[in-house]
């Protein structure tokens, strides 16, 4: 064995993030990306992730908006603390700063959405009538290939802030930031199962997510040539299709993952 000057570093195994745990793909497969062996998720992993998201989502949606905002702010704190690590990984410190700021920006929206997107409705009769936004439920997210961190954060944060559970298919060519981000999420009080991150082949995973009957919405922002087929599959349970922006922040990006509920009650004595 060759002599070494320093100690031999311990290398990280890049795994999936499902239900708050870090399993390997049940298929036992990996692929090489960014010089690492990265888990190559299977259809079964997608289904497991959807089940985890569905199970976790009511609790997340049931938290107070103030509380949800604090958890997302905590994500920003954890991400900030690991700036150096992420900068080294993706080679762009400015992008890391932008990702932190994006989480902070969205964290502040949690308890403002209902006021900006909801309404009190002046109906022509003795009724109190109001409209409030609610989470759509479980959202499938196909994140853009680039930028590796900010693209992911820009799509994930608006899904989470409204109270949804997410199943994310990470950038295929640059997946490491997603797994690193999973470690941030796991230490940020985001309930396990709310954000599930899968690495693997987009063409293999996206159709499974699009066709899954227990997914309520599909974000195709990061999809490329296969959008028509994904949208066709999504119609089987009338999924909401969101075509968002890879690098923007806006309450309307959140609105795509929300339903509007209108409640009527008579007024009288």
């Amino acid at each position: 064995m060759a002599e070494r000057a320093g100690r031999l570093p311990v290398k990280k195994t890049y795994k999936l993030y499902i239900g708050g745990a870090f399993p390997r793909s049940e298929s036992g497969r990996t692929y090489e990306a960014e010089g690492q062996n990265v888990a190559r998720a299977s259809r079964k992993d997608v289904r497991d992730a959807v089940r985890a998201a569905r199970a976790a989502q009511p609790k997340w949606a049931g938290m107070t908006a103030y509380n949800r905002g604090q958890v997302l702010y905590r994500v920003a704190e954890m991400l900030e603390a690991r700036t150096g690590e992420f900068a080294e990984l993706i080679g762009d410190e400015a992008e890391v700063h932008a990702a932190v700021d994006r989480f902070v920006w969205y964290a502040g929206w949690a308890d403002k959405l209902a006021q900006v997107l909801g309404s009190a409705n002046p109906v022509a009769g003795p009724y109190f009538n109001f409209t409030v936004p609610e989470p759509t439920g479980v959202v499938g997210v196909l994140v853009p290939e680039e930028p590796p961190l900010l693209g992911l954060v820009s799509r994930l944060a608006p899904v989470l802030v409204g109270g949804n559970g997410a199943v994310v298919v990470a950038s295929e060519s640059r997946p490491l930031a997603a797994i690193e981000l999973a470690e941030v999420l796991a230490t940020s009080d985001v309930p396990g199962g709310i954000a599930n991150l899968l690495t693997g082949f987009r063409s293999e995973l996206a159709p499974v997510l699009a066709a899954h009957m227990d997914v309520n919405a599909l974000d195709v922002t990061g999809a490329d040539g296969d959008v028509p087929e994904l949208e066709r599959l999504a119609a089987d349970n009338v999924k909401r299709i969101v075509r968002g922006s890879a690098d923007a922040q806006s309450p309307w990006e959140i609105a795509g993952f929300l339903e509007l509920k209108t409640v009527w009650h008579p007024m009288g004595v």
Partner: peptide, 18 residues
């Protein structure tokens, strides 16, 4: 559900999202 009627039912109004 997108519309909840409490102690009433089948009410509609142009100002009320449906």
């Amino acid at each position: 559900a997108g519309v909840i009627w409490a102690n009433t039912y089948n009410r509609f109004d142009p100002a009320s999202p449906f």
